[in-house]
Design a binder for these strands. Structure first.
Lengths: 176, 176
DNA sequence: GACGACATGTAAAGAGTTACATGATTAT
DNA sequence: ATAATCATGTAACTCTTTACATGTCGTC
């Protein structure tokens, strides 16, 4: 049975430790968000599917009268995750950037608008780089999750590159 | 009435000149594809909506008995496009990269697999950079569409950056 | 007592892809 | 001839977001 990529993000989150749905969401927001976002609308139905498929187990663990379901990987789930990660086949990297579409068609508007748009894009990526950097400063490196740190650094470098690129463009457009 | 971003890509394509649906798709594939892809499944229904909304005109222009509908912007469509491009407000840049998700969780597999994955990602972006470069080599610069060339160069630089980044990671993982 | 974090979920809508179906024209 | 390109479209499906609904726990 085919699993969605989001399902594998869930399996990956549970590979580290048992988590609640809320916790999985928090994990994704704090780590995969910049290249794979997950919303509650997908998360909870997906957890049900993974449970039915026997890839995860559920355990009730309420705090007082606040309900809480802890999920953990089954051996089957562990295997499914390992198999999936082992596939090194090429897949497309999808980018959808509304501001870049506007920039692409911005010959239709005045130079000032174009420069402003480019400047805002630079700021957007600078902010994102800073947000990711703040994440990386907090926690010490874990040997068993070295790739988590690599990918975080990847995001910082990427958004720094993008911020620099748009800043240069904005400067050129301002002095045109 | 709210238009989708894809609708604006269509308006933008028609801003340059009148085009058929097929031609709009070819334009998008050759220019906006690397940051905003468009499929036939969206394109033709969207053309109908834009027609109903009065933002574009349709003219029948068959070649022999092969049907062909040429679309062009109305004044209303021209205004809608200019208004949309003039909005410099910040919008998120969405990235969804399945291979990067695998890389993120690849602590679960052997070093060789990790290195192979990173190497394949480097190759993927190198190929994409080369594809975009080929596009840019063909045609001479047009003053009235300067931003088209800027955004194309943006794509080349971006994928070159990504290819370099993953190549360095792959090298590090191989020598670990 | 109020606020922020913890916690679970659904319904509806929207966006987008894939696969299919059909047929004409042009270049090799 | 036959393959590539030009050309139009739909149906089914998948994915994802948004908005809503509900309630608890810990802290200021």
């Amino acid at each position: 049975m085919e699993l969605s990529n989001t399902a594998y993000v869930i399996l990956g989150a549970l590979h580290e430790r048992a988590r609640s749905g809320y916790d999985i969401k928090a994990f994704a927001d704090a780590s995969t968000r910049h290249f794979w976002a997950v919303s509650y609308g997908q998360l909870y139905p997906e957890l049900k599917r993974l449970l039915d498929a026997g890839l995860i187990d559920a355990e009730d663990q309420p705090t007082g009268s606040r309900q809480r379901t802890l999920y953990r990987l089954t051996r089957l789930g562990e295997e499914a995750l390992a198999d999936w990660v082992s596939d090194t086949g090429t897949r497309p990297c999808e980018i959808r950037d509304e501001m870049l579409v506007r920039l692409f068609f911005s010959d239709a508007v005045e130079r000032e608008k174009r420069a402003e748009l480019a400047g805002n894009m630079a700021a957007r990526h600078r902010a994102q780089a800073n947000g990711l950097r703040k994440q990386s400063e907090g926690k010490p490196a874990h040997r068993e999750n070295a790739m988590h740190d690599e990918v975080l650094q990847f995001g910082i470098d990427l958004h720094e590159h993008l911020a620099d690129w748009y800043a240069r463009l904005a400067a050129r457009l301002e002095n045109e």
